[in-house]
Design a protein around this nucleic acid. Sequence first.
DNA 1: ACATTGACCTGAGAGC
DNA 2: TGCTCTCAGGTCAATG
Length: 265
Amino acid sequence: MPELPDLAVFQQYFESTSLHQAIQRVRCHEPNLLVGTSPGGVGRWLSGHSFSGTDRIGKNFFAEMDDGRFLRFHFGMTGYFEYFKGLDEEPEYSQFRIHFDNGYHLALVMPRKLGEIQPLESMEDYAAEAELGPDVFKDSFGFSQFKDILVDRRAMIKSSMMDQSVMAGLGNVYNDEILYQARIHPRAQIPDLSEKELGKIYHAMRRVINKAIEVDAQPERMPENWLLPHREPGAQCPRCRGEIERIDVSGRTGYYCPSCQKMPD
DNA sequence: ACATTGACCTGAGAGC
DNA sequence: TGCTCTCAGGTCAATG
């Protein structure tokens, strides 16, 4: 479930494996993933160059190239990178593979083919084009901006926080976690939330993302007192021992604790 | 503006 | 054992 913390970990992985090595060629098993290019086109885009750095906006990962161009990756629901040596070690569900001069390869592994790979001249142009909101984990995204963005909205809090054009990076799972820790009902309407409650949400967001990255976004390493290890109906709330419930919000299945997360008055 | 639904894709897990 | 069904997850388009 690649959300912002997962992306941050992918970014570290990419940086520790795939920078500053000449790219020989690429192989795309699933051309439908390519945006604005073709298997041949992405090959020409990359071949003979190398990656020099990385960046991220929300759930979009940008591999920066030695001449300042980019390749954007979106991981859909199931994507991740895997770096490996011999082709006989290529992972199952590898949809796209980059051959480096040193004999190693980087694969985009994605059982469900809902991701995207896109050559780009500019990250900023892409963000504008895609109408991406600000990345929720950039240093510049402080509480005042969080509040300003939400203040004249009337939607449910969870819907707006998951809307990538409002703010970018959060998905279903971490959103539930944040609202659980802030003790806010996922269907709470934004106009009904006080500044203090918005503050609790913002700070829970920082805390959750930081901690999730610290444990490499591995679900089994999430703290036991989080909601995340208890995302099933009938599970016990680690805080009040009440029953975790399933709830649909804007078409996504969420989980929350009805006794800890009350609707605002 | 906002909510809802369905489509995309396909493996995992459940139920028979 | 093997089949069929449902459900995830992120995003977008269509409809109310």
